[in-house]
Amino acid sequence: MFARAAASAAVIVTLAAFDGAVAQTTSQPPDTMAARVEACTPCHGNKGEGTSDVYFPRLAGKPAGYLYNQLLAFRSGRRKYPPMNYLLEFLPDPYLEAMAEYFASEHPPLPQSAPSEVSKEVLAQGELLATSGDAGRNIPACVSCHGPGLTGMQPGIPGLLGLRAAYVSAQLGAWRYGTRTAKSPDCMQLVAGHLTEADVTAVAAWLATRPAPANPAPVPKGTYALPFGCGSQPN
């Protein structure tokens, strides 16, 4: 009888020890998107606010549809940047969607706009193109698609604020040379095809000087009509 009780006690002690061991070895990372996207943070910041590297863009607060399209384009190699292509290659659509929604829902403050290194004349040219376009050269104003406040429109059109001139200029260059493309009709490629190098410098510089708006959120879908068809923003 005593032996049996002792044996039972031993079993209980063993089980308790075993439970402890299991609890220890099954200590898991937090079951959150923040923990899952840590691979993004060295370049894009902890909450997608961007880092000191001027070529890595802010992701936070951009429309989820836009971010998802970019993730798909990087995964398939349509948008080329080997470190991104490599990271995303074997991730399924629903996961990319969740990543896009995560960064879209983050709202760290926009950075202070940096003083520009270009002349007043160049900034004035940038402002003119961004706000009025140049009908003679078939260049629509940036605001006609990216919104009067340049904060973008749900679900597919990104805001243009909080980005450094170097990034915007590199992207516009990539659209012009056809190394960055999007779903047909590829509206940005059409627009960028009409820009000169000087236009790109001017627009990128002016955009980077814009102060943060009171409400940086992208406006709801259909708030305004687009001037032409756009594969990334189907009607």
Partner: peptide, 18 residues
């Protein structure tokens, strides 16, 4: 860095930063 593949058994893998 890198992500393990997204699979039926592990659809939302954790990634290693570059």
């Amino acid at each position: 860095g890198g992500y393990p593949p997204g699979t039926k058994g592990n659809p939302m893998p954790y990634g290693m930063p570059p």
